[in-house]
Design a binder for these strands. Structure first.
Lengths: 222, 222
DNA sequence: GTCTATATCCGGATAGAC
DNA sequence: GTCTATCCGGATATAGAC
C-alpha cells in the first residue's frame, strides 16, 4: 500500500513526494471502507457513506476504486496480509509453555490493535467466505497443519498433555478473536465502555492461564 | 410462532386447522430469511430471494411482513428466545465438574443444531448490535452475573481453581459458537465437507477436557 | 389469502467540465 | 487529480385483480 522506503523520490519530511497524496487517500478510503463494510455488510455498504467517512467526494472513491468489488477485495487482502504477518510462531525446539503463551499473547494483541480488521474477516467467513476459499484451503491449511505437527511432537515427547492439536489452535483463535469481534457484548457484560490496558492484560492473563493449565503446562509468570 | 397445543380448534392430524397455513408460511419465511440475512446482511438481503428460498411469490412475504425490518426483528427475537431457552444451567449445589461439562455440551449441541441462528446472532453483534442493546445490558447481563456468582462460590469453597468467572463463561461461549459461526473455516482445516456425529462428539470432548482441566477439575467420563 | 403490475426510491457507475 | 450532473439497474413497497 505504501511505496518502497528506498524510493529515490522520497524526501526526509515525506512532503511533496509524488504519489504521496495518492497513498494517503488510498489508506483513508480503505480504513473508511472497512468500517462501513463491518457495519452494513458488502451489499449494504454505500460508496457515498464511505466517501463521507473518508471526508472525500464520492467520485474520488470511484477514481481510486472503479468497482466496489475491487475496494472490498483490496481491504480483505490487506487484512489477510496483516494476519499472516504474525503467523510465524511455534517451533519444535521451543519450550511448549513459553511458545504457547507467546502465541496467545500475540493473537490477543492483534485482536485488540485491529478490531475492525478482525470483524471484517469474521463477517466474510460467517457469510460463507465467498472471497477466501482459496486462502482457507491453501495457505492457511498448510500453516495450521505445520503448527499442529509441532504440538503433536511436543505431545509425543511427553512435554504436554495429549490434546487434539488442531482443536487447540482453533480454540486459541476462537477465544482471542472473540474479544475483538464481540466487543459490543463483552464490554456490556464487563460493565465497561471500552477496553483499557488493564482489561487487555487481564484477558491475556486469563486465557494464558486457562489454556496452558488445560494443556498440563505451568503458565509462565508474566 | 405456533398456536397453543390446547387450541380447541386443533385436530389430531393437524390438518384443516384454521391458521395452520399461516403458521407454516411464517416458519418457512423466517427460516428462509435467516439464511438470506446471514449470506447478504440486512441491507443486502433481497425480499425476492427470500421469497424464492421459501418457494413463495414475493408479494406473499410482504403480506406477512409489510416491512423488511419487521421480518428481521422477528427472526432475531426468535433466536434470542431459543438462546434463552437453554440458559438455565449452573446451580451452587451442583458438582462443578458435572455442571460445567453439562453447560459446555449444551452449548455445543445448540451450536451444531442451529448454526444459522448462531451466525445471525453473531452478525448482529459484530455489526454493532443495533437491535440488541437492551437485551445485552438487560436480561443477558443479569443472567451472566448470576452464573458468575455461582462459579465464584465454587471457587470460594475451594472446589475449583481460581479463574475469572466472567471470562470463563465468555470463553465457553466463544469456543462453542465458533464451531457454528466459522464452520466454513474449521471444516476446511479439518478436511471435512460437513460435521458428522463423530466430529461433534470429538469437539465436545475436546472442549470439556481442555476447559475443565484448565479449571483444575477432573473431566467426567462421558 | 394469492399474485401481477407498477410506483418510487436509492445506489453504483459514467461522462465530462474544471 | 477533483468534482457535478446524470444514467440506469435493482430493490422495497403498494395497488388492486382474482
Amino acid at each position: 500500500m505504501s511505496v518502497s522506503s528506498f524510493d529515490p523520490r522520497a524526501t526526509p519530511t515525506g512532503a511533496y513526494r509524488p504519489g504521496r497524496i495518492r497513498d494517503e487517500n488510498l489508506n483513508t478510503i480503505m480504513s473508511a471502507a472497512a468500517a462501513e463494510f463491518v457495519q452494513h455488510g458488502y451489499r449494504g455498504a454505500s460508496i457515498q457513506r464511505i466517501a463521507d467517512r473518508a471526508g472525500l467526494p464520492k467520485a474520488n472513491v470511484h477514481y481510486y476504486f472503479p468497482r466496489k468489488t475491487h475496494l472490498y477485495q483490496s481491504v480483505l487482502k490487506e487484512i489477510v496480509a496483516l494476519w499472516n504477518s504474525e503467523l510465524d510462531e511455534l517451533q519444535v525446539d521451543d519450550d511448549p509453555a513459553q511458545a504457547l503463551a507467546r502465541f496467545i499473547r500475540s493473537k490477543v494483541r492483534l485482536s485488540f490493535l485491529h478490531p475492525t480488521a478482525s470483524k471484517l474477516f469474521a463477517l466474510e467467513i460467517i457469510s460463507g467466505a465467498p472471497n477466501l476459499q482459496a486462502y482457507l484451503s491453501g495457505e492457511l491449511r498448510e500453516w495450521v497443519a505445520a503448527r499442529a505437527g509441532v504440538v503433536q511432537a511436543w505431545i509425543d515427547a511427553g512435554r504436554m498433555r495429549p490434546v487434539d492439536p488442531l482443536q487447540l489452535i482453533v480454540s486459541i483463535w476462537a477465544t482471542t478473536q472473540h474479544y475483538a469481534d464481540f466487543d459490543e457484548q463483552v464490554l456490556k457484560l464487563m460493565g465497561k465502555r471500552r477496553y483499557d490496558a488493564a482489561a487487555m492484560e487481564q484477558i491475556a492473563d486469563f486465557l494464558t492461564d486457562l489454556i496452558l493449565t488445560g494443556c498440563g503446562l505451568e503458565p509462565p509468570v508474566s
